[in-house]
Structure formats: structure tokens, C-alpha cells
Design a protein around this nucleic acid. Structure first.
Lengths: 131, 131
DNA sequence: CTGTATCCTCTCTGATACTG
DNA sequence: CAGTATCAGAGAGGATACAG
């Protein structure tokens, strides 16, 4: 059980996120979401225009890209730069905060990519032993 | 793996994840999901039994905790230790891989928690200027 | 205590079509 | 090119009841 205050389960560096209605949960959900993650990491490579980003993030629909970018812009992760012209040209880039978040996401993705085989083996083992 | 790419936008450390049907996308989705994140970070503090973990991750339902743990176990992130006894006692802990993933998630969460105010300000600014 | 089974709701997601 | 509008299906997620 957890009866230890000094070193117990509550490691207060991440205390908030365990609380039901903490704002950080929402933010984490946004940046760690299926498309949020990919959009941020892509924009960490370089700024992208809408359709270029859509091509970069393979499989995303226009609707989800639009929605994801709106959310990330509202959270202060992404900057939307509209250059009024014909044809329209809109460039998306990261804020400082967005870049920091993207760096963390990148660390996570790199770790996962390096562990794909390990995970696949674990799945095979799991599926065969507990079929 | 993929050294074939010229350098361009593909920064090949995270090349795979941008492809539609890459296994790493699924894995990232599992560990970065709403409940997956919290379960992993909680288990990084210490092993937990089912109901203790349920209390730790405030707001999660039995169903989602069970489902999340199954997925993470299958992916080789979590170990389920069943001690046959009455009453049943099942303890969950992290594998090495799970611990590494949890550490990255923790980095992300700490960054986000430190930026909550910044995000809230960004939201207020966004909502007031573009209402 | 540790879950599974079921039902039900609601959001997320993806085509498709259309506008500036 | 850069989106928005709309519709419909799939799946996430929660409440409750029940089983080992």
C-alpha cells in the first residue's frame, strides 16, 4: 500500500495529471493524440503549408488536419501564418513551446521505433501463449 | 532500415511513423493514449494492484483500465503477476521497455505541467481575438 | 479482490461535396 | 490552395451487473 509520503506514489512532479479535471490532461491529450503527435513532429522538421503537411502526415484527412491544427494553435503550440494572396498561402510552424513538446514526442517515437521488433515479438508470444 | 532516403523532409530517425501502415504508429497510439499514458506513468512510480491503480488514475473505469492493461501487456510494456490466492492478488509492473517509455512520457508530462499557465493564456488570447 | 459481459451514449474519424 | 459542411460508421468510454 502507499503510506509513504516522502517517496511514495505521489511524485509531485507529475501530481496534477492524475487528477480528474486537471487542465494538463487535456493538453497532453491534444499533443499526444494520434494526429497531434505526427503534426507536431512534422512541423519540428520545418514549417509546412497545409497540403504539404497533409502529404507528410500520410493518411490524415483534410478535416482532421484542420481540426488538429486549430486545437494546437489554440493551445499555443502552432502558429498559423496567413499570407493573403491568390492562390492562398498559409504556413504553419511551431512556437517555442510547441518545439519543446515536439522534441519530447520525438524522443518517445525514436524509442518506440527502435523497439518495434521487441514489441512484435512480445505480441506474438502473448497471442500464442494466451490464445 | 531505411537509408535509401535522401535527406529532405524525412529525418530518418522518425521516418517510419509517418507512413500510413507503420507498426510504430499503433504502438505510439497505445502508449500515448489517454489512459495508456497515465497507467504507464503510474506504474513507473511503483507496481500497483488493480484497484490501487484504479484509484491512482482518477476517473478511469474498470473496463478501460482492464483494456488498457491488456493492450500494454500484449505490447510488452506491462507485466501481470498473478498470485493465486483467496482473495486474488494481481500485481502490475513495467518491463524495461515499459519503464523507458514511461520515462519519456514523464518528460512530456512534466513539460506540459510546467506550461499549463502559458497554454491557458494562449487559449484565452485565441478565444478572445478570434471569437 | 479481480476482473468480464452487456448495453448505451457520444465523440472521433473518414468520405464526399462545396466555398473563398 | 486552403479550407468548411455534412453525413454516417466505428470505436472510445462509462454504468451496471455478474462471475471466478
Amino acid at each position: 500500500m502507499e503510506s509513504d509520503d516522502t517517496n511514495g506514489p505521489t511524485d509531485d512532479l507529475v501530481a496534477d495529471v492524475f487528477a480528474r479535471d486537471c487542465p494538463s490532461r487535456t493538453i497532453v491529450d491534444h499533443v499526444a493524440s494520434k494526429w497531434g503527435t505526427l503534426a507536431l513532429v512534422a512541423l519540428a522538421e520545418s514549417p509546412y503549408r497545409f497540403n504539404a503537411l497533409r502529404r507528410r502526415v500520410d493518411g490524415i484527412s483534410e478535416k482532421m488536419l484542420s481540426q488538429t491544427l486549430h486545437t494546437l494553435e489554440r493551445d499555443g503550440m502552432v502558429v498559423r501564418d496567413v499570407q493573403s494572396a491568390i492562390p492562398p498561402r498559409v504556413e504553419y510552424s511551431l512556437t517555442d513551446l510547441g518545439a519543446q513538446v515536439a522534441a519530447r514526442l520525438r524522443d518517445l517515437i525514436e524509442l518506440v521505433e527502435g523497439s518495434v521488433n521487441e514489441v512484435i515479438q512480445a505480441r506474438n508470444h502473448h497471442d500464442s501463449s494466451a490464445a
